[in-house]
Lab assay of single mutants.
Amino acid sequence: QIFVKTLTGKTITLEVEPSDTIENVKAKIQDKEGIPPDQQRLIFAGKQLEDGRTLSDYNIQKESTLHLVL
C-alpha cells in the first residue's frame, strides 16, 4: 500500500502493486475521493509523475507517500 497526502492534509491509503501505472493510481484516487484523474497531479520526491509510467519506474515502494496537487 502507499499513502497519498492531499493539500488539505488528508491522507488516503491505496492498495497498489509496483506494476501499477500512475494512471491506474489516479483512477483509484477517483474511486475513493471522486476527483477526476485529469485534475490530479501526483508528486513524489519533488517530481511530477507521468501517467504512462509505473510506480516501480519511480522507485515508489510500499509505505511511500505521494503528494496530490489539484
Score class of each variant (00 low, 15 high):
Gln39Asp: 08
Asp51Met: 05
Ser64Pro: 03
Leu68Gln: 02
Pro37Trp: 11
Phe44Val: 03
Gly46Leu: 04
Thr11Gln: 07
Lys62Tyr: 10
Leu42Arg: 00
Val69Pro: 01
Glu33Gly: 05
Lys10Val: 08
Asp57His: 14
Val4Pro: 00
Gln40Asn: 03
Gln40Arg: 02
Val25Ile: 12
Gly9Gln: 04
Ile22Asp: 00
Asp38Val: 09
Lys32Ser: 10
Ile12Ala: 02
Leu70Gln: 10
Thr8Lys: 11
Glu15Phe: 15
Thr8Pro: 05
Ala45Val: 06
Asp57Trp: 11
Phe3Glu: 03
Ser19Glu: 10
Val25Leu: 12
Leu42Pro: 01
Phe3Arg: 06
Ile60Lys: 01
Asn59Glu: 08
Gln1Leu: 14
Asp57Tyr: 14
Gln30Asp: 05
Leu42Gly: 00
Pro18Phe: 15
Arg53Pro: 05
Lys47His: 14
Gly34Gln: 06
Pro37Ala: 14
Gln61Pro: 14
Leu49Thr: 03
Thr54His: 06
Thr13Glu: 08
Glu63Trp: 12
His67Gly: 05
Arg53Ser: 07
Leu14Ala: 02
Gln61Thr: 12
Leu49Glu: 00
Ala27Gln: 13
Ile35Ala: 04
Thr11Gly: 03
Ile22Phe: 03
Glu50Val: 07
Gln30Ala: 13
Thr8Trp: 11
Phe44Asn: 02
Ser64Met: 11
Thr6Leu: 15
Val69Ala: 09
Asp38Arg: 09
Leu66Phe: 04
Thr11Arg: 08
Thr65Gln: 06
His67Gln: 12
Ile43Leu: 12
Gln48Cys: 15
Asp38Gly: 11
Ile43Asn: 06
Thr13Ser: 09
Ile60His: 01
Asp20Pro: 01
Ala27Thr: 10
Ile35Thr: 08
Pro37Val: 15
Leu55Phe: 03
Gln61His: 12
Val25Phe: 03
His67Thr: 13
Thr21Ala: 04
Thr65Leu: 09
Thr65Arg: 04
Val69Met: 12
Glu15Met: 14
Glu50Gly: 04
Gln1Phe: 14
Gln30Gly: 07
Arg53Trp: 10
Leu68Met: 09
Thr21Asp: 03
Glu15Ser: 14
Gly9Trp: 04
Thr13Met: 10
Val25Met: 05
Ile35Lys: 03
Ile29Ser: 01
Thr54Val: 06
Val69Ser: 09
Glu33Val: 15
Glu15Thr: 12
Glu23Phe: 13
Thr65Gly: 03
Gly52Val: 07
Glu23Pro: 03
Asp38Phe: 10
Ser64Val: 07
Pro37Phe: 14
Leu14His: 00
Lys62Trp: 09
Asp51Glu: 09
Thr6Gln: 07
Phe3Leu: 06
Gln1Asn: 11
Thr21His: 04
Ser19Gly: 12
Gly52Lys: 10
Gln40Glu: 02
Glu15Pro: 06
Lys28Trp: 05
Thr11Ala: 05
Gln1Ile: 15
Val25Asp: 00
Ile43Pro: 00
Thr8Gln: 12
Asn24Val: 11
Lys32His: 10
Asn59His: 10
Leu66Met: 05
Gln39Asn: 08
Arg41Trp: 10
Gln30Cys: 14
Asp57Met: 06
Arg41Tyr: 12
Phe3Val: 05
Asp20Arg: 02
Leu7Thr: 13
Phe44Arg: 02
Val16Ile: 10
Glu63Pro: 03
Thr6Met: 14
Glu17Met: 14
Leu42Thr: 00
